[in-house]
Computed example of a mutant assay.
Amino acid sequence: MSGRADSDLSPDTRADDADDAGHGDDVGHGDDAEGAGHGEHGEHGEHGEHGEHGEHDEHDDDTPHRARRARWAAVGAGAVLTLAGAAAALLRLTGSVPALVPAAYACGAGACALAAVLGSRGRTRRALWLLIAGLMVMALGDQFD
């Protein structure tokens, strides 16, 4: 039942719903509080000092390592894709394809090179999106072949 006051229920049903709703609110409030870590057990919840907050502190120690790995991944992927795009542009340039194809590969390689630079400076999200854009430009150039 919705428990709304304007429902068309008989008075005895409303009284039962009000009793159930009152009991349900207490149980729900306790569940929500424990789930959030602010239950009756104090500031740290039932897990104590090493519960949810202790695990969070362990992840804080790992954050510099994750950032370093993300930077290296952005630099590595950008460098590999730059070399691949430049090689493809040179190979397509020697063939009999429209000039748009090697230009697209070169532009995509340039975008990937810029992504490698951004990744080395810690702008890994922008580097990821630039890598995606560079690959899309290269794929678009390949469609004209």
Rank of each mutant, 00 (worst) to 15 (best):
A70C: 09
G108Y: 01
G54Y: 03
D6G: 06
P11K: 01
A67W: 04
F144G: 05
M138F: 00
A74P: 05
P98G: 14
G39Y: 02
H56C: 10
G37A: 08
G51V: 12
L83Y: 04
H41Y: 07
A79D: 03
L81F: 10
D31M: 06
G110A: 13
G95S: 08
G76M: 05
T124H: 07
R69F: 10
R123Y: 13
R121M: 06
L81N: 08
C112D: 12
L83H: 02
G134Y: 02
G110L: 04
R69L: 14
A89Q: 11
A79L: 12
A89S: 14
V137Y: 00
D17V: 06
G3Y: 07
E40F: 02
D61T: 04
V117C: 01
R69P: 05
A5E: 13
A113V: 04
F144Y: 12
G134R: 01
E49L: 12
G119D: 06
G108I: 04
T82R: 02
L131H: 12
H38P: 00
L128G: 15
A103H: 08
A139H: 03
S96I: 01
S96E: 14
E34D: 14
G24T: 09
C112S: 13
L140H: 06
C107P: 05
Q143H: 14
L81W: 09
E40N: 08
G45A: 10
P102K: 00
H53F: 12
A73L: 15
D31F: 05
A103V: 03
S96Q: 14
T94R: 11
A89I: 05
D145W: 00
F144R: 12
C112M: 11
H23Y: 09
W129H: 10
G78S: 09
S2V: 01
W72S: 14
D32G: 14
T63M: 07
L130D: 01
T124K: 03
S96G: 13
T82Y: 04
R121S: 03
I132D: 03
H23L: 12
D61P: 03
H38L: 15
H59R: 07
L83F: 09
R68L: 12
S7Q: 10
H65A: 14
A88H: 06
R71H: 14
G22P: 06
A89P: 15
D20Y: 12
F144L: 10
H50M: 08
D12Q: 11
L100M: 09
G108L: 04
H41M: 05
L128A: 14
E49W: 10
